[in-house]
């Protein structure tokens, strides 16, 4: 990503795969690529990508009749983000700058500029946040509408085909996400033109305060999660099925083997705090604050960041050398 102009090429940088279909003048026609926490490729389909390319050519032909090039902006790469530039002065520019590092750098800059708010974490919301899902094979078609959701209250139905959002032709899920991303987390509206039974209809989905928020599990796939605070200061993988069996733990029990305690980076105090509480490498975390229903280590990590507050303490139940140990850890900012 080192040379990518961030004023032109915008997409959900947390994704491992993303496609832009655009005009050389900088107009983005369509995007392809999205996901949820259940898998990296569950929202992708080869048939849908082929269809996007076919329909996208039609978008290009229509645009060529009355082009409206975007106002050119100065070229801006990740290396032009002052917070990232300052960081790489201390260390060095990584050989490979990953896409997700752009989100991290922009957040770091927003913190430096004092423009960061906790709502800044709710990026690229899926249509399910508004109450509808799209057909993976035909991604402009609504697959489901959740009862009682904003989409349901608007009158959207399964089978409706979304033709445009806020007046712009859309063909894919991230095309719609682009416009959802621009609706305030405190509430707003999205105008959709849909087709039902061959007839066009206009709908306005009203989105209430907090509509962008998702739980720790739904957020846990985002690399962006690791930048959020507070941080427990330790982490590691789950135990294998054999390891659980040897320790007499249920096969579906949550476990996290403490493989590392943070001693590096911007916040080594997180690791010192964990050590001070009595956490050691090799400990097995069984529960925290009386909870243990996490599906993965990253689910726990996201839960900690979303639900714990600096100044509180959290009780942890650990297994050490086959015996249960309880520790209380302060949560630090």
């Amino acid at each position: 990503m080192a040379t990518v102009d961030l004023n032109v090429y915008r997409f959900d940088f947390d994704l491992t795969f993303s496609v832009l279909l655009m005009n050389a003048d900088g107009t983005i026609y369509h995007r392809y690529g999205s996901r949820d926490h259940t898998s990296a490729d569950g929202h992708l389909s080869q048939a849908a990508l082929v269809q996007l390319l076919r329909d996208g050519v039609a978008t290009h032909e229509a645009y060529a009749k009355s082009p409206r090039p975007p106002k050119p902006l100065p070229r801006r790469t990740i290396l032009d983000i002052p917070a990232f530039a300052a960081r790489t002065k201390k260390t060095k520019v990584p050989d490979c700058i990953h896409c997700h590092m752009v989100h991290d750098a922009e957040r770091e800059q927003a913190i430096s500029d004092r423009t960061w708010t906790p709502d800044g974490r709710w990026i690229w919301p899926l249509p399910s946040q508004a109450g509808f899902t799209l057909d993976v094979e035909s991604p402009a078609r609504i697959a489901t509408v959740r009862k009682g959701s904003p989409a349901d209250r608007t009158g959207l139905r399964a089978g409706d085909v979304v033709r445009s959002a806020n007046g712009t032709r859309v063909l894919t899920e991230p095309d719609i996400q682009w416009f959802l991303d621009r609706v305030d987390a405190k509430g707003g509206a999205l105008k959709l033109e849909i087709e039902r039974g061959g007839e066009p209809r206009s709908m306005t989905v009203t989105l209430p305060k907090g509509w962008k928020e998702v739980g720790p599990l739904e957020y846990s796939w985002r690399p962006f999660m690791w930048q959020l605070r507070p941080n427990p200061g330790f982490g590691g993988p789950p135990l294998s099925a054999d390891e659980k069996k040897k320790l007499g733990l249920a096969a579906d029990a949550f476990t996290l083997k403490v493989q590392y305690i943070i001693e590096w980076g911007d916040h080594p105090e997180d690791g010192r705090n964990a050590k001070k509480a009595g956490i050691r490498k090799g400990d097995i975390l069984l529960s925290a604050a009386g909870q243990s229903d996490w599906q993965s280590s990253v689910h726990f990590q996201t839960w900690f960041r979303f639900t714990r507050r600096a100044g509180e303490s959290v009780d942890l139940r650990l297994l050490r050398d086959g015996r249960e140990v309880k520790v209380r850890m302060d949560v630090i900012p």
Partner: peptide, 19 residues
């Protein structure tokens, strides 16, 4: 950027894959 210049001169849409 090279592909973008090529697309511009040929009047073609541009498909970019980020991964």
């Amino acid at each position: 950027e090279a592909a973008r210049a090529r697309a511009k001169s040929e009047g073609r849409p541009l498909l970019i894959v980020f991964r």
